[in-house]
Structure formats: C-alpha cells, structure tokens
Nucleic acid binder design. Sequence first.
DNA 1: GTGAAAGCGCTAACAG
DNA 2: CTGTTAGCGCTTTCAC
Lengths: 338, 338
Amino acid sequence: MPTIRDIAKMAGVSISTVSLAFSSPHRVKPGTLDRILGAAERVGYVADPVARSLASGRSRLIGMVVADISNPFFGRILREIEARATAAGHLVIISDSGGSPQREREILEHLSGQRVAGIVLSPCSHGQDYGRYFETLTMPVVMFDQKIEGVARDFVGTDNQLASAMLTEHLLQQGHRRIAFIAGKKGLFTTVERLEGFRRTMATAGVEVDPSLILDGRYEGEDAYVLVMRLMTRHDRPTAIIASNNVMALGALQALNDLGVKCPARISLASIDDVPWANVISPRLTCSVQDATLLGRLAAERLLARIGDPGFRESPGEDLVIAPRFRLGNSCSPPVEA
Amino acid sequence: MPTIRDIAKMAGVSISTVSLAFSSPHRVKPGTLDRILGAAERVGYVADPVARSLASGRSRLIGMVVADISNPFFGRILREIEARATAAGHLVIISDSGGSPQREREILEHLSGQRVAGIVLSPCSHGQDYGRYFETLTMPVVMFDQKIEGVARDFVGTDNQLASAMLTEHLLQQGHRRIAFIAGKKGLFTTVERLEGFRRTMATAGVEVDPSLILDGRYEGEDAYVLVMRLMTRHDRPTAIIASNNVMALGALQALNDLGVKCPARISLASIDDVPWANVISPRLTCSVQDATLLGRLAAERLLARIGDPGFRESPGEDLVIAPRFRLGNSCSPPVEA
DNA sequence: GTGAAAGCGCTAACAG
DNA sequence: CTGTTAGCGCTTTCAC
C-alpha cells in the first residue's frame, strides 16, 4: 500500500501538499494537482481512513442504533440509510440495543470512540439525564421512529397519533364500541402517542374506554398472542382489537387463528404499521402504513446534510413528521351482537 | 477524555507499561498493575480504538457483507452476528452489495482500509480471479449462505441440494410429475445446488424434467410473480411449483391468489426456505427450513474463534453445512387430472 | 519488569 | 501556493 509519502516523492512535493490536494483541490496549483492526482492514480493510492480519523478526529463511519435489527421495519430503514451513506462515501456500523437503555448508552460511547461522523438512532431511553448526555455528543445525531422529548436534535418519524386515530375512527364508524388496544412498550414515544391517538378519538366520539381493554403488549408478538388469548376467553370480549405494531398484529392474528375465532366475522383486528407481505396474509389486515423507505431516506438525507455542511450543523434540530396512510384490508367488519 | 499518558502519570509509570498492563496483564508486576488499573478505573480511561488500530494495524470492527440487508433472512443472521460480536467487544459494519460483484469488491477494499478484524460475507461473485483476490485478504473471512468454490476459507451454510430434494420427493410421492422449478439468480452457489437437488431427485425417480418448466427467477419476488402468471396461462401447466427461496414463494403465491387459482386444490406450491410469519399465511407453505439463527451463530463463532486465536488462524478453512428441516404445510396436495 | 524511542499515516496550523 | 513542524494516542521492539 502506497502512503502519502510515496505520492509526495513521486510528485516532487511535500506530504502536506498531497494532503491538501485531496481535501481542498482548489487550493493547489493546477499543474501540481495534476502531478499529485496522476501519481496517486498510477499507484492506486487511497488515504488510510484510520490514520485520517486519528489525525482529524473524524471518521467516515456512521452509526445506526436500533432496538431490534431483525425487525423488517428497521431492515428497510437500514437498507435505505446504508445505500445513501455508501453513496456519500461512508460505511455504517449497526448496533442492536435490544431495547436496553444501558446498552444503548454503551453503544453510543463505542461509536463516539470510533469518531463516527454521525449517528442515526431509534432511542429506547428517556428521561432528563439521558437527554443531557445526549446533548454532549459532538457529532450530528438524528433520531428516528422513537424520540426523546426536549432534546434539540433532528427527529424523523410518523404521526403516531394519527396512525392510531385513523384506525380507531374506522372501527367506530363500523359501529364498534368495545375496542381493545394492545399498547407497545412502556415509556416509549410511539407507545404513548399511539395510545393517545386512540384515547382522543374515542373521547371525541363520546365513547368511554374500558380501562381493562388497554393492554401492555411491549411490542412483542408473543405478548400480543397471550393477551389476545386472554381477551377472547373473557365474558366481556371486545368486538375489535387494535394492535400497536405489526408484530403484535401478527401475534394477535395467530391467537385468533389458533382459537378458531373468525376474523373479521367474530372480531375485527386493525394494525398500526404495515406487515410485510400483507397481501398473502388472510385476512388482509386493515392498517395504517408508515413509509419506512421514506423515513430512512429522510433520516439519511438529514444526517448527511449535517455531516457535510458544518454551517448547517449548528442550526437547531427539527421534527420531520410524515403522515401515515390508511389501508383498507378485510380484517374489520361491523360488530355482531353477542 | 484521559489518555494513556494521564494514566501513566497517575500510576507513576511509563506509557508503555500502561499499554502492557492492558494487553498482557500478566507481564506486569501485580502492584504496578493495581496502580494502573486503579487509576484507569478512577478516571474512566478507555484506550482510543482509532489510535489503537493505527498503531497495531487491527481494529475491533467486523465487516458483514450481504446482497440485500432488508431480506429478513439476513436480518436474523445479522442480529445473531451483531450480538456475538458485541459480546466479544466488536462493532459490526454492515454493507449491502446489492448483488453486484464490483460493489462487493469495493466494500471489501473499504473494510480492509478500516483494518477490520474479520469479515462475514455472503459472496455474490464467483470465478477464479475473484477467488485469488479473496486469498489476498489478510484477515479471517467466513462465507455464509453463498460460497465461492475453491477458496480456502470457512463456509457456513445449509445443504442446499437436500433442501430442494426433500420438497421434490414430497411432490413426487404425492403423484406430481410436471413440477416447475423457479430458480434463483444465475451463477450463485445456492442456485446451482438447489437446482441440482431438484434434477437429481427427479432423475432418481425416473421422471423426465421438462426444460421449459425450469425458470430463472433471480431470487426476486417480482420475477416469480411474473413467471407464475405465465406458467398458469400456458396450456401445459405444471401441477406443482417449487420456488427456490422465500420471497419467490410469496411472489408465486401472490400470483396464484391474484389469478384465483386455488392452492393447493389446483396447484401445489413448495418453498425452499422458510417465510417469516408462515403461520398466518394461507395456505401454510410446505417448505424446507433453514435455521438462520444457527447459521448466524456458527458464522459468528467461527469468525470470532479465528480472530481470537492467532494459531487457529492458519488452519485451513472448513465447510460447516447444516441440514434443513422439512416442514409440512397445506400448500401441496395430489395433482388433479386436468 | 519497565522505560525509551521510533513509528502507524495522516491532518492542521503556521510560516514563508 | 507550498513546505515545516507538531502532533493524534497508542503499540512495539529493544535495551536496561
């Protein structure tokens, strides 16, 4: 591997000029530039990224932190981010916090150690302390999906209240009154928002919510499965269920299938968030769809913009909230009288 | 951030001793060691990974290269690898080659530049030249899923011939003779092997294969969709279809649904490789299942073992092939007479 | 056991 | 415009 010294020698200049030639070509005399670039080309010189990071304090690495890598929702976002990062000459380090705030913190520390140029994360933490720590990070950070309130950083996400409100309204219109809501993991932004969207819509319609129909499903398919099993064996069953995310919706559907309870004939099911291959699942789930690819694109663009433009770096964080779409399936129908 | 110099000062030793204390604790006198570790603990010293990489020529990063990050199969493997890498103190860089050999090569170059400690990849390239390049990489490499023949590196994968043979035999037993086979992307190891498993099983059973029933689906759902559409509008339809991977199976199923062709009543469908949430898809697909989690675990263990043990590093690469399992669904039934 | 010294390959003032 | 000079923070011989 040729080093910067080799190129300097070949071009008959000092190493700092070679360095300049790559970082600020316009500040080097055209003739000199040509010699340098020519020499570099000839021997296939590429600046060593590690040496560069050490000297400059910044790498061409981008960190991405999520709560569950294997979740296809994150998979699509990762793909989008990786593609754009790559196009801009960056590599992406992916880390799984497993939903643990402590792990998340450790990961952030490791990423800082690697001098990552920026971080995209779906935080699983909250609280003031964490927010403060967050502010100490010196590189651009964009949060996506989940958000820590009161942090002056960019956030890219869906309108979660709207996502659940749409489904709630749909069920209300069909005549449902006893609607169960399987909530996500406690404390998370999306959990709170989605529940709030449900509550508000019910309140607006003047329908009282039975507190025992609001269940904690932690965004886990297994949990939803168990909860639905319990729900359907109660005497005061709901007539409809809203699942707070896709894997819980599938868990719920599985439970209904296993019980032999027909959906939508005996119970309606709606899902916040799309499921992959929705078309081959029966019944097709009525759901609110968030555009993961768009989310990924926006997050990547925002991060890369901050990384690329030192001026932009100082401007305050912004919220980029996109609206979900309603997709009608055949998993909801008017309630039957019991 | 405290540096090694600060610790040296605090402990009243030279920086080289501090360095030694972390890399080979046993070579430092217990008393000195305590002072050093104590000081480090007190101020929260952590060796700078970038400086370390530059000086030693090796980082604590692991590279993972796949053809499509958003594919859930890779998602599960990634998760497994990330978890084990993290446990061993490594971060993982994920890259998407998009199936392009050239991109793959560039990525490998970038990873080398970062001095990654090891690489896990599902190669999309083949050919002798590539194999030679491959040998020049100085860090441990383990291939998974796809394999480049004739390369002395570890490989972790499923018995692909068996995976398709199982399904073929099942269909033959049910009386099918006209079986269509939707193959994967040309040139890939899994494509060749899976097709071979099909051919052999048919040959063994003495059933002639109609060449027009072997189709090139490139491992894409879209392609499978179109191919099945074509297939079902021919006068000499097959009575069964085998899809070479999960996304093609779903594409195929979608086509059948859209056409209104009942599966398995009018046509049987079997899939090499599992689909996520198979239980809520109807019909449940009869498929051969490969254990992605196990694959990921084996790949990670193998790589980490090579990274950790310099002695093991020299030993020749091995093939770790795991057997797929057969899972009966209800997507296959005896052929109806046309 | 421990320390001195020489880098790893590059960036970033600062002169000229 | 280009070169000189210091490092970035650590590893790694090689002496003592």
